[in-house]
């Protein structure tokens, strides 16, 4: 049941046929794990907290640096030196005191990630490196937890959604096998704030849709965003039967 404050706070959701009181209650019951609290995790977590996602777990091990502030909109200049997850948690609670926010201020080893996944309905991969992305993917496949992956570099964004509760779902590794790869990241290639912000915002949108029971338009799809032309390309991700993560093994 929503209390009077919540009915007022979420009134613009309640007006939507696709959300309504049932959807808002589903958001309140929802548990999301956000891994990486940089340029993707900032807008994603702000929107999910504002929307009333009832249980948000934030994970990162970084401290705020001045070079983060150009795009990581959860933080401000006097937060420099503080742990990202602690500042972000405080911010989310200020936005919405009705929700519960928990922070994990470390790089989670696989065993801890697996334990966290038993308590999560959905994971947002907002990390900035390939090794973390491969570990999160593998853990979500094994735990059958749906995963929304965002990534961005320069003027380019990538967005995908895998529902690992379905056994025939492809995975991130089918698309990008290999964690040893020299991949592009923000510190070696640069990034425009609103591009990474767009992708993080869309991760939040897909999460809200998932929790209220709306179908995702990007399930098993890869969306490529070009921040210069504002063009989107859509590709179908096929399950690789030989995938060492989600294939028969």
């Amino acid at each position: 049941m929503l209390n009077d404050d919540e009915l007022l706070r979420y009134s613009r959701h309640l007006l939507l046929e696709d959300v309504g009181e049932t959807g808002q209650q589903a958001l309140k019951n929802a548990k999301v794990l956000i891994i990486g609290m940089g340029g993707l995790g900032s807008p994603a977590s702000l929107y999910l907290a504002a929307a009333g996602v009832g249980h948000i777990v934030l994970n990162d091990f970084d401290h705020i640096e001045v070079s983060n502030l150009q795009r990581q909109i959860s933080y401000q200049s006097d937060d420099i030196g503080e742990a990202k997850v602690e500042v972000a948690k405080r911010k989310l609670q200020q936005i919405n005191p009705e929700i519960k926010v928990r922070s994990i201020n470390k790089a989670m080893p696989e065993i801890q990630l697996t334990m966290e996944l038993t308590m999560a309905d959905l994971v947002l991969d907002c990390t900035d490196n390939m090794a973390s992305r491969q570990l999160i993917n593998k853990s979500c496949v094994d735990a059958k937890v749906p995963l929304i992956v965002g990534a961005a570099i320069r003027f380019e964004g990538q967005l995908m959604f895998f529902d690992h509760s379905e056994t025939d779902s492809p995975c991130y590794h089918c698309l990008f096998p290999g964690s040893e790869e020299q991949t592009l990241n923000c510190s070696n290639s640069g990034i425009i704030g609103p591009v990474v912000g767009t992708i993080g915002t869309l991760q939040a949108l897909e999460a809200i849709k998932y929790f209220v029971g709306l179908p995702s338009g990007i399930k098993n799809k890869l969306k490529l965003f070009d921040g210069k032309s504002l063009d989107w390309q859509t590709f179908t991700i096929n399950k690789d039967p030989k995938c060492t993560v989600c294939g028969q093994h």
Binding site: C174, L175, G178, E181, Q182, L222, T236, N238, D240, K242
Partner: peptide
């Protein structure tokens, strides 16, 4: 390494 390829919007796994 690190490339993805789509043929007519269908991503082809590296093994294929």
């Amino acid at each position: 390494i690190g490339s993805a390829v789509a043929v007519n919007q269908d991503i082809i796994s590296r093994s294929h």
